[in-house]
C-alpha cells in the first residue's frame, strides 16, 4: 500500500516538475528504469522471504540501474547498438520471475494455495 502510494507520489512529482529526459540518453534511462523496477520487485520478494537487507537492497538497486545504463552506453560506443536488447531481455525475464515469486508468496501468505 505504502509502495503504491510512493509510486503515485513519484509519478506526481514527475508530472509536477515537468522534466523530460533528453533524447540522447533516452535508451539509457529507459533500461535503467526497467532495472530499477526489477530491483524493487526483488526487494519485495526478499521481504516476503524474510531475507530482506536494506543495505543489500540499496546497493543492488544502484548497481543494477547504473550497470544497465552502462551496458547500453558501451553497446552504443562499440557499435553494438542492439546490446540494449540484451539488457531489456535479461531484466524483463528477471522482472517476470520476481513478479511470479512475489505473487506466489502473497498467495501462500493469504492461504489461497
Amino acid at each position: 500500500m505504502v509502495l503504491l502510494l510512493a509510486l503515485a507520489l513519484g509519478v506526481a512529482l514527475g508530472l509536477l516538475t515537468d522534466i523530460a529526459i533528453p533524447a540522447a540518453v533516452l535508451t539509457y534511462v529507459g533500461v535503467a528504469v526497467l532495472a530499477a523496477f526489477d530491483s524493487v520487485l526483488g526487494g519485495i520478494r526478499a521481504s516476503l522471504e524474510h531475507t530482506f537487507d536494506d543495505k543489500v537492497f540499496a546497493f543492488g538497486f544502484l548497481t543494477n540501474t547504473l550497470l544497465a545504463a552502462l551496458i547500453v552506453f558501451i553497446g552504443d560506443r562499440i557499435g553494438v547498438r542492439e546490446l540494449y536488447l540484451a539488457a531489456v531481455v535479461a531484466f524483463g525475464i528477471r522482472l517476470f520471475d520476481n513478479l511470479g515469486i512475489v505473487r506466489r508468496l502473497l498467495f501462500q501468505r493469504k492461504g489461497w494455495e
Binding site: 509502495l3 503504491l4 510512493a6 509510486l7 503515485a8 507520489l9 513519484g10 509519478v11 506526481a12 512529482l13 514527475g14 508530472l15 534511462v29 535503467a32 528504469v33 530499477a36 523496477f37 530491483s39 524493487v40 526487494g43 537492497f57 538497486f61
Partner: peptide
C-alpha cells in the same frame, strides 16, 4: 526506490 521509479517513468 518506488518513488524514484515513478519519477523516472514519467
Amino acid at each position: 526506490a518506488m518513488l524514484l521509479v515513478g519519477f523516472l517513468l514519467v
